[in-house]
């Protein structure tokens, strides 16, 4: 079991910085195409923002719901990626050719933009879910050894 960290300073830090880290992760995700970043980095930051409250407040901390559902979230991310990737293939283009996406009333460049954004969101979800579940499984391993 992950016990809470009993220093008030760490608690306050976690409470103040968790939303800020999440906002920064969102920024990294949305601005992936014109600054360094994108799906993988945003996923890591999201995972960090889940792990920080767990370090500070223990496993009962905020977002503990994610514990069992993290893997499902990761699967949703992969589905998003594969879905957006395969749609052009079905419609006669190449895999991940965003220009062929069937979004009505849009220029090809706009389609590319939204396609990349969707793909990146999928990557973010998967990476974040994987990192969080790795963290949780490390904890369970430690518990077994402690017994």
């Amino acid at each position: 079991m992950i016990r809470p960290h009993d220093s008030v300073i760490v608690h306050t830090l976690a409470r103040v910085f968790t939303p800020i880290i999440q906002l920064f992760a969102l920024y990294v995700l949305i601005h992936g195409h014109d600054s360094p970043g994108g799906g993988f980095q945003a996923g890591t930051l999201f995972a960090a923002s889940v792990i920080l409250p767990v370090i500070a407040f223990g496993i009962q901390g905020s977002l503990a719901v994610l514990e069992r559902r993290a893997i499902i979230l990761g699967a949703v991310g992969i589905l998003l990626y594969a879905g957006i990737g395969l749609l052009p293939l079905i419609l006669g283009g190449e895999f991940l050719n965003y220009g062929e996406l069937p979004i009505p009333g849009m220029e090809t460049s706009a389609r590319r933009h939204w396609g990349i954004l969707g793909i990146e969101t999928g990557v973010t979800l998967t990476v974040a879910a994987t990192a969080v579940s790795i963290y949780y499984s490390l904890r369970e391993r430690g518990e077994e050894e402690g017994k």
């Binding site: 920064f24 930051l45 500070a56």
Partner: peptide, 18 residues
């Protein structure tokens, strides 16, 4: 561009240290 990387690095650093 590098400032963004530095910010992300600072965030991950504190969590690792803690």
């Amino acid at each position: 561009m590098f400032v963004d990387i530095a910010l992300g690095y600072a965030v991950l650093n504190i969590i690792g240290g803690l």
